[in-house]
């Protein structure tokens, strides 16, 4: 029957690229975590005397900043529907 064919044809096998209310809630939470972590690592780096530790903490601060932008990009609806290549990993 038409109805059956219709439902077969348009059955989704996974969720479409649409942000759910839950996604949105998680993203805003995670953005706050990343911002705090980026600031914290940077502050810690400034407090440390050991050069190696300083450098490691600064790198981690950088990483959290990058993650912040990745998460923010998921909230950016204008970019979303067109070309979104996904996060390719941290580059220094």
């Amino acid at each position: 029957m038409y109805r059956e064919r219709y439902s077969q044809q348009y059955r989704m096998n996974q969720p479409p690229r649409v942000l759910s209310t839950k996604d949105c809630a998680y993203l805003t939470d995670a953005l706050s975590w990343e911002l705090l972590a980026a600031k914290k690592a940077h502050f810690m780096a400034s407090q440390c005397s050991d050069q190696q530790i300083k450098q490691q903490l600064e790198q981690i601060s950088q990483l959290h900043q990058t993650h912040y932008d990745v998460l923010l990009n998921q909230l950016n609806t204008t970019e979303h529907d067109h070309e979104h290549f996904g996060y390719q990993g941290f580059r220094q």
């Binding site: 996974q14 649409v18 790198q59 981690i60 990745v70 996904g86």
Partner: peptide, 29 residues
């Protein structure tokens, strides 16, 4: 685990993995 669509899930998995790497770097240091 809770992400709805695949592209969001993939991004979060990459972030999770890199956060683990950062944890590991700190531990090794």
């Amino acid at each position: 685990r809770e992400a709805s669509h695949q592209s969001l899930h993939n991004d979060i998995m990459n972030i999770l993995n890199e956060t683990h790497q950062a944890t590991r770097d700190l531990f090794n240091l």
